[in-house]
Amino acid sequence: MTTVLASLNQALHRCLAENDLVFLLGEDVLDPYGGAFKVSRGLSSQYPGRVLTTPISEAGIVGVAAGMALRGMRPVVEIMFGDFLTLAADQIINHLAKYRWMYNEQVRVPVIIRTPMGGRRGYGPTHSQTLEKHFLGAPGLQVLAPTTAGNPGALLSSAILDAEDPTLFIENKLQYLEPVLDGENRGEFEIQELGETFSYRLTVNGAPPAVLTLAAYGYMADLARKAMLSLAYEDEIFTELVIPTRLAPLEISPILDSARKTGQLLVIEEGALTLGWGAEVLARLAETDRLHLRNCRRLAGKDTPIPASGPLEDATLPGVTDIQDTVRKMLQP
């Protein structure tokens, strides 16, 4: 069994081994610590000259990485907590995401910024957020989120080795511990990779046709698939789950195709509800000609800061039972 954490860590090892121009910059990334969530463990021992532990300067290191990329290198930046991306927002939006376009396609800026988002660990308001929605829709920026239904390490390594554009790689603190659903771990699920769309479709093995589409990414997709199983076994409600791994640029067709088939859609995200990813997904569907969905809903984090106390935090972020409840409600006659 490979966890998401191991898959990402192995990918970083592979990338540093494969290409001398790959560099890693981040706070506290040196061994034996290997980064706050250990994704970078072992790298500084193996590639000492190319793994830089940095000052606490999120904007600065993202900017330095941009300069490296403009001059031919392929830097990877680890931002310790996703919450700290706000400090690098100017660099990301006004610098990294701009250079290629504003210099009239004369340059490329292949910087990969990896960072863990997400709550459910009691870290409180400034260390638990899911903030990528603020970066979706910045032209020139690619946003990826790995899934256990795919290959997290492969998604990361292809970005590091081949991406042409700056990329936010959104991880999740709890997803690190999830097993990747390869071969023997697939258990109850049938997983279909949807071609060039960076998306996956999950159904419960042997289930009848789905009556409702779930759409979720990252760790939320892991919670959604758990909800899917209980809905199937306890309520005999059969759903299918669409999991995009590229959030920007947004490829709507996998969600659209599934929703067209089932006629009902629930979009689930951990980030705060208002003006989030789900809002854009539903807007795209609303603008699609001749698509008549019976029912669409969003389930998301509350529009409040995230509390530290367990019971309060649970009530703030969407969980497995919230998904089940929402689906049941949507299906009530």
């Binding site: 560099f23 904007a59 600065g60 290191i61 993202v62 900017g63 330095v64 990485a65 941009a66 300069g67 490296m68 990329a69 403009l70 001059r71 031919g72 290198m73 830097p75 100017d90 660099q91 006004n94 610098h95």
Partner: peptide, 16 residues
Amino acid sequence: GIVPTATGMALAEKFR
């Protein structure tokens, strides 16, 4: 905002 970028460029030239 350009100052970190320039610093990164200099580091890339040094590395290469």
